[in-house]
Design a protein around this nucleic acid. Sequence first.
DNA 1: ATTGATATTGAGATTTAATCTCAATAATAA
DNA 2: TTATTATTGAGATTAAATCTCAATATCAAT
Lengths: 151, 151
Amino acid sequence: MTEKDIFVDYLKQQGLKFTKQREEILNFFLKEEKHLSPEEMFDILRKKRLPLKIGRATVYRTLKLLSECGLAEKVDFGDGLNRKVITLFEHKFAHPHHDHLICLSCGKSFEFSNPEIEKLQENVARGHQFKVAYHRLKIYGYCKKCQSTKK
Amino acid sequence: MTEKDIFVDYLKQQGLKFTKQREEILNFFLKEEKHLSPEEMFDILRKKRLPLKIGRATVYRTLKLLSECGLAEKVDFGDGLNRKVITLFEHKFAHPHHDHLICLSCGKSFEFSNPEIEKLQENVARGHQFKVAYHRLKIYGYCKKCQSTKK
DNA sequence: ATTGATATTGAGATTTAATCTCAATAATAA
DNA sequence: TTATTATTGAGATTAAATCTCAATATCAAT
Ligand SMILES: [Mn+2]
Ligand SMILES: [Mn+2]
Ligand SMILES: [Zn+2]
Ligand SMILES: [Zn+2]
């Protein structure tokens, strides 16, 4: 069951079509290891000057589909204090859940997963009789490199 | 040391001025117990038809000042998946740190604080030699009421 | 109270990521 | 091949937040 199978099956199941554009975007997303924003993906796909032309709306629409079928996950890496929203899409297929440390200086993010924290979150939710769908834990600060490069 | 003192002192220390508008916005913010968005605050302050006219930019600028001096805290209650950004300002003065459970159905939020989670976060950061500035833990799902009102 | 240097203000323009519109086109199944 | 229906991209639109700038208010020093 490859990522492509998952996508194709999802589309079929939803009565949607597997188009050239969707295939191109899927392949590009899978190939890229680092997190990319929709705008970056759009720019790069445009620069490629493929025989196929891909519009901004199609990039956004396809990333939404990839999220719906479990291949991608949208994450906002903005600091929550300034206007800037930094939306990136991560690989989700065969990539276990994790949260992020986000450097306020260089913008880099670092992944971590901590089962104890996850368990405590469940407890908190249970205490509020709250049914959890998902969560986001973001720790903002300064990465090792940005601390040494003192300002 | 009242909230007003804190604000006035902060302004003075920064070489800024304590204006009618800033005082009006401070009072309104302090009076309101529930979280409000800047746009809501702007609308309400406008409807008041005070002798004093307050512009949108001044509301945003003043909320930023209130955040800088520790009286307010900006929090994004959007679900991180849809476009909508829901920026609210919480009281921070004499309100201990907490995180939120956010209902995807009714939009209500529920506060919690869990020292164990906080401690584990410190451990995670230390493990990455990461210097923490602040964090945001948001647990999305369905509140008790919205579970019973079974859609 | 007056002055003067400087910060502040609000109207409206601008920014920006994301979404929407819609007529032309492509994908699928019969 | 054909009919049905989904998809597409250009460009318009949205909406929160910020920016611009000329007019005005603040406030410390007289
Ligand atoms: Mn990640
Ligand atoms: Mn709160
Ligand atoms: Zn860094
Ligand atoms: Zn609810």
